[in-house]
Amino acid sequence: MTGLVTSNFYSMQGNIKLSLMIALPIALVPFLLGDASMIPMIVAIQIFVFASNTGTSLKMDESSKWNKFEITLPVTRTAIVSAKYVSFMLLILLGLATSLVTVLLQSIRGELSFDLLFSGYSFGLQLSLMTIGIVYPLILKLGAEKSETLLFAAAGLSVALRFLLWYLLHLSDATIDFRSSEVDRVSLMVALAIFAASYAVSVMMYRSKELH
C-alpha cells in the first residue's frame, strides 16, 4: 500500500505546490489587516484548498488508465481504496500543517482566540471530510471526467448540511446560532461519520467495479 500512497502523492505533487502558493499567502491577510474575525474563514480555506486536490488526482488516474493497471498489481482492491483514503487524510493533514502558519502569525500579534481557531478548524475539517466523503463514491459511480463539478457540488452540499444541522439544533434549543460551538462540534462529528461511511461504501463499490 505504501507504493500506492506514494504514487498518489507523486501525481498530486504539482497541485500540492499550487495549493501551497494559495494557502500560504492568505495566512498574511488577517495578520496584515489585523482582523482576527477572518481567522476561521482563512483556516477553513487553507485546509480545503488541499483537500480539493482529490478530484484532480482521481481524474488523472482515470485518464492515464492507471486505475486499470492498479488492479493487476499485487494488492487487493480494498488496499487500493484504503490507499486513496489515506492519501486524502494526508492531504488534509498538509492543509492543517499550512494553517499553523496562520496560527503562528496570529500568536505573534498576541490575539490568539481559542474559540475562533476551533471554529475555523471545525469548519475546514467538516468541509473537507464531507466533500471528499461524498465525492469519491460519486466519482466511482459516475467517472472522474466531471470530477471538478462533482467536487463543487459536494462542497456545496457540505455547506448546506452545516446549515441543516444548525437548523435542527436551533429547533431543539433556540439560543443556538450559526456560530455556536455546538454547530461546530456536531457538524464535525457528522463529517467524520460520513467520511467513515464513505470509505465502507467505496470499498464495497470497488470490489465489484469493472475497469476498462
Binding site: 507504493g3 506514494t6 507523486y10 505533487q13 504539482g14 488516474d61 492515464s64 492507471w66 493497471f69
Partner: peptide, 17 residues
C-alpha cells in the same frame, strides 16, 4: 497506463513499494 505526472524513476519507487 502509468500516471503521466510521474517520471520512470519515481514510478520505480511506487513499484518497489
Amino acid at each position: 497506463n502509468f500516471p503521466e505526472m510521474l517520471t520512470p524513476a519515481r514510478l520505480a519507487k511506487v513499484m518497489a513499494g
